[in-house]
Amino acid sequence: MRTALLTLVLSCILSVQAAEKDPALIQDIRKFLELTNVAELSFADIKTNIELQSRANPDVPAEFWKELTDKLKPQEFVERMVPIYASHFSHAEIKSWIAFFESPHGQSFLKSQVAVLKECSAAGQAYVEEVAAPLLKKLQKK
Results as ranks from 00 to 15, higher is better:
residue 1 M to F: 06
residue 1 M to C: 13
residue 1 M to H: 09
residue 3 T to A: 12
residue 4 A to I: 03
residue 4 A to C: 02
residue 5 L to S: 05
residue 5 L to W: 02
residue 6 L to A: 14
residue 9 V to T: 11
residue 10 L to Q: 03
residue 11 S to P: 01
residue 11 S to Q: 10
residue 12 C to H: 01
residue 12 C to V: 11
residue 13 I to Q: 09
residue 14 L to Q: 08
residue 15 S to R: 09
residue 15 S to P: 07
residue 18 A to G: 11
residue 20 E to D: 01
residue 21 K to C: 03
residue 22 D to N: 15
residue 26 I to V: 13
residue 26 I to T: 10
residue 26 I to K: 08
residue 29 I to C: 00
residue 31 K to I: 02
residue 31 K to G: 05
residue 33 L to P: 13
residue 34 E to M: 06
residue 35 L to M: 06
residue 35 L to S: 07
residue 35 L to D: 07
residue 35 L to Y: 05
residue 36 T to P: 13
residue 38 V to T: 15
residue 38 V to K: 06
residue 39 A to Y: 00
residue 40 E to S: 12
residue 41 L to G: 14
residue 42 S to K: 07
residue 42 S to Y: 09
residue 43 F to W: 05
residue 44 A to R: 08
residue 44 A to T: 14
residue 46 I to Q: 07
residue 46 I to C: 09
residue 47 K to E: 12
residue 50 I to K: 05
residue 50 I to Y: 08
residue 51 E to K: 14
residue 52 L to E: 12
residue 53 Q to E: 03
residue 53 Q to D: 03
residue 54 S to N: 08
residue 55 R to T: 00
residue 55 R to A: 00
residue 56 A to Y: 01
residue 58 P to N: 06
residue 58 P to M: 06
residue 58 P to Q: 05
residue 64 F to C: 00
residue 65 W to I: 04
residue 67 E to G: 01
residue 69 T to Y: 00
residue 69 T to F: 03
residue 71 K to S: 11
residue 71 K to T: 02
residue 72 L to S: 07
residue 73 K to S: 13
residue 73 K to P: 11
residue 73 K to I: 15
residue 74 P to E: 13
residue 75 Q to N: 10
residue 77 F to V: 14
residue 78 V to Y: 02
residue 79 E to R: 02
residue 79 E to Q: 07
residue 79 E to W: 00
residue 81 M to H: 07
residue 83 P to Q: 02
residue 85 Y to I: 09
residue 89 F to A: 00
residue 89 F to S: 01
residue 90 S to T: 15
residue 90 S to L: 10
residue 92 A to E: 12
residue 93 E to M: 05
residue 93 E to T: 10
residue 94 I to H: 02
residue 96 S to V: 04
residue 96 S to L: 05
residue 97 W to L: 12
residue 97 W to A: 08
residue 99 A to S: 14
residue 101 F to Q: 15
residue 102 E to T: 13
residue 102 E to Y: 01
residue 103 S to F: 01
residue 104 P to C: 06
residue 105 H to A: 15
residue 106 G to P: 06
residue 110 L to V: 07
residue 110 L to Q: 00
residue 113 Q to D: 08
residue 113 Q to W: 00
residue 114 V to F: 07
residue 115 A to Q: 14
residue 116 V to F: 11
residue 118 K to L: 04
residue 119 E to M: 10
residue 119 E to T: 08
residue 120 C to S: 09
residue 120 C to A: 10
residue 123 A to I: 10
residue 124 G to M: 15
residue 126 A to Y: 04
residue 127 Y to H: 14
residue 129 E to C: 12
residue 130 E to R: 12
residue 130 E to K: 14
residue 130 E to T: 11
residue 131 V to K: 13
residue 133 A to W: 07
residue 136 L to W: 06
